[in-house]
Amino acid sequence: MDVASLTRELVSIPSHDGPDCDESAAGEFVAAWLREHTDATVTRDDHGNVLARKRGGDGGESLALVGHHDVVPPDESQVDAGGAYVVDERDGRLSGRGTADMKGSLAAAILAFRDADAPGNGELVFASFAGEERGGVGCRAAIDEGFAPDYAVVGEGSTGYSATGVTDVAVAHKGRRGSTVVAEGAAAHASEPEAGENAIYRATDAVDIVRDLDFPTTEVLGHDLRGSVAVTEIDGGSSWNVIPEECEVTVDERTVPDERAPLERVEAIEGVSWRVDQDLPPMACGDAAFADAVLDAAADAQDARPEHVVKPHATDAGWLAAAGTDCVVVGAAEPGEAHTAEESVSVAVLERCRRIYESVATSWLG
């Protein structure tokens, strides 16, 4: 089976989280395929994760090819009248929900895992996680239960960063910390504002603090990584003639390894508190030799010259890196493709990624 055919099969399986769908069928398909086409040890855990292992002799290191089989809910145009996902192929590209993020690269990793020999020592692992689009719940559960490869190639998008059509190697990515600033006051009639405490005023004082914060920065293998902090929503007040007693401000922070903006400073304002709602960790590869080896494999698989790059958004590589795995990100998706009604992926780039994954599996564990 070639990568286009396997991608089509994977994409055709609905696997978003919603009242009319779950991702279990996609995980079952991946596990069954691996059992039929490889001699690896294949398991599917209680969280929906699929793990396959090829073991060599004692000692040695472990390398994982990592992806996920869940997707975000499809656009209406990506579903037929019967509720099945639509997959089209035109001009060398496959289109449909999940083609870019990330069932195409998942198919490439499955085939690379199938074709790679078992290492002489150590272990080659394939992992397809559930719930990546829900905050990495599958990856986090696997880590909690002992999933701890030494190295990982995560198949999220890295194509088109240094130049159009070039599949690069991401050695770092940003994380995301979403938080809420809550300002509390005391209600009063608006005709007597001094009788209350205006929560919106307290919230805007907090916004001024957020606006003046420096963005977090760091360096990863010679590459500068700069985060950001931005107020994205504000909600307060109950009526035009009532001094507001509560106001909430949403803050989006793009984090970098080992750095966070000091958002807790807003709590110096009377009546203001701050809570973290989501914290997706950033990723930084700490092993330059591994990053270079993957870059060599990427260079051998294409005529263009790939580069080490950084990604602007979080992936499961962040959870793995936080648990001690040295990660890089290599995948077929291009910037702006994921989660769109026009989502698509190049078949030629999927073939390229399959070659990169197999080459890394063979050379790094050889």
Rank of each mutant, 00 (worst) to 15 (best):
235 D>L: 11
264 E>W: 07
344 S>E: 08
18 G>W: 07
345 V>H: 01
54 K>Q: 11
316 D>W: 02
239 S>L: 11
164 T>D: 15
64 A>K: 00
33 W>F: 14
88 D>L: 15
43 T>Y: 06
15 S>Y: 10
146 G>D: 02
39 D>W: 04
179 S>L: 15
360 V>K: 05
164 T>R: 11
333 A>L: 01
221 L>G: 02
246 E>V: 04
363 S>C: 10
134 R>W: 13
96 G>A: 06
238 S>D: 05
323 A>S: 09
305 R>E: 13
168 D>Y: 04
31 A>M: 10
206 A>H: 11
38 T>S: 08
307 E>D: 12
33 W>P: 02
74 P>M: 08
357 Y>A: 00
331 G>H: 07
294 V>H: 00
19 P>T: 15
45 D>P: 00
236 G>S: 11
85 Y>G: 00
224 D>G: 10
283 M>T: 06
346 S>V: 02
352 R>D: 00
264 E>V: 10
340 T>E: 06
205 D>R: 09
156 E>S: 08
12 S>E: 09
256 V>Y: 07
235 D>V: 07
160 G>I: 09
298 A>Y: 01
232 T>M: 02
326 D>L: 11
298 A>L: 07
144 D>S: 03
100 A>T: 04
216 P>Q: 03
295 L>P: 00
292 D>M: 09
61 E>R: 15
148 A>F: 15
333 A>Y: 01
135 G>R: 03
291 A>C: 02
359 S>N: 13
212 D>I: 14
8 R>F: 07
195 A>P: 03
217 T>R: 08
291 A>K: 09
283 M>L: 12
61 E>T: 15
133 E>V: 08
251 V>I: 12
366 G>P: 13
244 P>M: 15
103 K>M: 02
137 V>K: 12
42 V>A: 06
281 P>A: 08
130 A>D: 01
194 E>L: 09
25 A>C: 06
50 V>I: 09
163 A>P: 14
60 G>Q: 09
214 D>R: 15
202 R>D: 05
163 A>N: 15
160 G>L: 09
167 T>M: 05
100 A>H: 08
96 G>P: 04
358 E>W: 03
306 P>E: 02
259 E>S: 06
129 F>Q: 04
133 E>H: 05
136 G>Q: 04
145 E>F: 06
226 R>G: 04
210 V>N: 05
12 S>K: 05
175 G>C: 14
151 Y>T: 01
207 V>I: 15
13 I>A: 13
72 V>T: 07
341 A>P: 15
52 A>S: 07
159 T>P: 10
141 A>T: 10
183 A>N: 06
165 G>R: 09
114 R>E: 11
185 G>A: 08
146 G>K: 08
14 P>W: 05
233 E>D: 13
353 C>N: 14
299 A>S: 13
94 L>S: 05
12 S>W: 09
263 L>F: 06
187 A>Y: 12
225 L>Y: 15
238 S>F: 04
90 R>S: 11
136 G>K: 11
99 T>W: 00
108 A>R: 01
215 F>G: 06
317 A>T: 04
318 G>S: 06
246 E>D: 12
82 G>H: 07
262 P>D: 12
194 E>Y: 12
261 A>W: 14
351 E>Y: 06
58 D>V: 13
132 E>Y: 13
26 A>M: 01
